[in-house]
Computed example of a mutant assay.
Amino acid sequence: MIIEVLLLVIFLFLAFSAFVGYKMVKPPRLIGDWTPKDLGFDYEDITFETEDGLKLSGWWIPNGSDKTVIPLHGYTASRWYELYMKPTVEFLLKEGYNVLVFDFRAHGKSEGKYTTVGDKEIADVRAAVKWLKENHPEEARRIALVGFSMGAMLTIRSLAEIEEVCCGVADSPPMDLDKTGARGLKYFAGLPEWLHVFVKPFTKLFSGGKEVNPIEYADKVKKPLLLIAGEKDPLVTVEEVREFYERNKAINPDVELWVTDAPHVRTLKLHPEEWKEKVLNFLTRHLK
């Protein structure tokens, strides 16, 4: 009888872990109702296809420039996210840049059943850059990325892996997915961090993704990079971002670190003018 109860408890625990893993790689889709038209800019609804056959949805917002910036949203967000995506798009447009913004796989209106939180999403960025270069080569002579959280991870990866991307801003980039994933269970779901070791195998099983740790790119990125870290971030510690910075600056003279007092991806919200000044200064210098 005791063995049967024990087996039932184990089964229920594993079933719960599987359920949590499934929910973690299949976030709810955020679809809003604002468009660049509400910001005073004409735009085009676009669709482009990734190398693994997914159709991604986005906006192309021309602005009469030969420089284009691609904002990259975080996990569970989309191009409509009003905390940082809307103000970033508006800021970039008002500063005269063209903007291409899209929803990562399994987010917003893009295809895809599961997110891999930084693994297969590199194909999404590559597809966006390819679409831009093929359809608007004159407007894409210089391409920059501004990423938040998961999007910041992809910014770092892109600087190492996508030739056409010349520089990037990484706001609140996770550096170690085991640590951030465990904290994320508590942050997103209110569950204990120790549960992550049991949930992690199921996230990989469902999504088919590999674990990506941006800290490993500290020895690969040699393009201009602005890192933004918040002292009150519950998902990513300043020490983890600083470790990347210290390693990267040994090979990259154009890496910068800005530490603020903000929680995760909230520097723009709490210090909007300072954030815009820092990012604009960075982009102006490196998108020449």
Score class of each variant (00 low, 15 high):
residue 56 L to V: 02
residue 191 L to S: 09
residue 227 L to C: 02
residue 89 V to A: 03
residue 239 E to R: 08
residue 174 P to A: 06
residue 231 E to Q: 14
residue 7 L to W: 10
residue 147 G to L: 00
residue 10 I to L: 15
residue 11 F to K: 12
residue 41 F to W: 06
residue 193 E to H: 09
residue 264 H to N: 07
residue 150 M to D: 06
residue 172 S to F: 10
residue 188 F to L: 15
residue 121 E to M: 05
residue 117 V to R: 07
residue 121 E to S: 04
residue 83 L to Y: 11
residue 122 I to M: 03
residue 45 D to F: 13
residue 87 P to W: 03
residue 108 G to Q: 14
residue 40 G to F: 08
residue 215 I to L: 15
residue 271 H to A: 12
residue 232 K to W: 06
residue 186 K to T: 02
residue 21 G to N: 00
residue 151 G to R: 06
residue 23 K to E: 10
residue 202 F to G: 11
residue 139 E to H: 13
residue 104 F to E: 00
residue 222 K to M: 09
residue 16 F to N: 09
residue 84 Y to V: 01
residue 185 L to E: 01
residue 213 N to V: 13
residue 75 Y to I: 11
residue 130 K to N: 14
residue 226 L to A: 04
residue 71 P to I: 00
residue 52 D to K: 14
residue 38 D to F: 02
residue 201 P to G: 02
residue 101 V to G: 02
residue 50 T to H: 10
residue 78 S to G: 04
residue 11 F to W: 10
residue 17 S to P: 08
residue 194 W to C: 09
residue 129 V to F: 09
residue 28 P to R: 14
residue 86 K to S: 11
residue 166 C to V: 15
residue 237 T to M: 04
residue 277 E to G: 05
residue 58 G to D: 00
residue 239 E to M: 11
residue 233 D to G: 05
residue 221 V to H: 02
residue 120 K to R: 15
residue 66 D to T: 15
residue 14 L to K: 12
residue 126 R to E: 06
residue 181 G to A: 12
residue 116 T to W: 11
residue 154 L to K: 04
residue 4 E to N: 14
residue 85 M to H: 05
residue 234 P to R: 13
residue 85 M to R: 00
residue 90 E to F: 09
residue 6 L to V: 15
residue 228 I to P: 05
residue 275 W to R: 06
residue 187 Y to R: 07
residue 159 L to W: 08
residue 200 K to M: 12
residue 50 T to L: 11
residue 202 F to L: 13
residue 60 W to T: 03
residue 34 W to I: 11
residue 112 G to K: 01
residue 260 T to C: 06
residue 218 A to C: 03
residue 48 F to M: 11
residue 162 I to F: 06
residue 266 R to C: 04
residue 111 E to N: 05
residue 63 N to Y: 09
residue 193 E to K: 15
residue 43 Y to D: 07
residue 49 E to R: 15
residue 45 D to H: 14
residue 201 P to K: 06
residue 106 A to G: 03
residue 112 G to M: 00
residue 28 P to D: 07
residue 35 T to A: 02
residue 131 W to K: 04
residue 264 H to L: 11
residue 220 K to E: 03
residue 58 G to Y: 06
residue 71 P to Q: 04
residue 209 G to H: 06
residue 271 H to K: 15
residue 186 K to M: 08
residue 287 L to R: 05
residue 276 K to V: 00
residue 30 L to H: 10
residue 96 G to C: 03
residue 199 V to S: 07
residue 255 V to M: 03
residue 12 L to D: 05
residue 147 G to D: 01
residue 206 F to R: 12
residue 194 W to Y: 14
residue 19 F to D: 03
residue 187 Y to N: 01
residue 91 F to S: 00
residue 211 E to G: 08
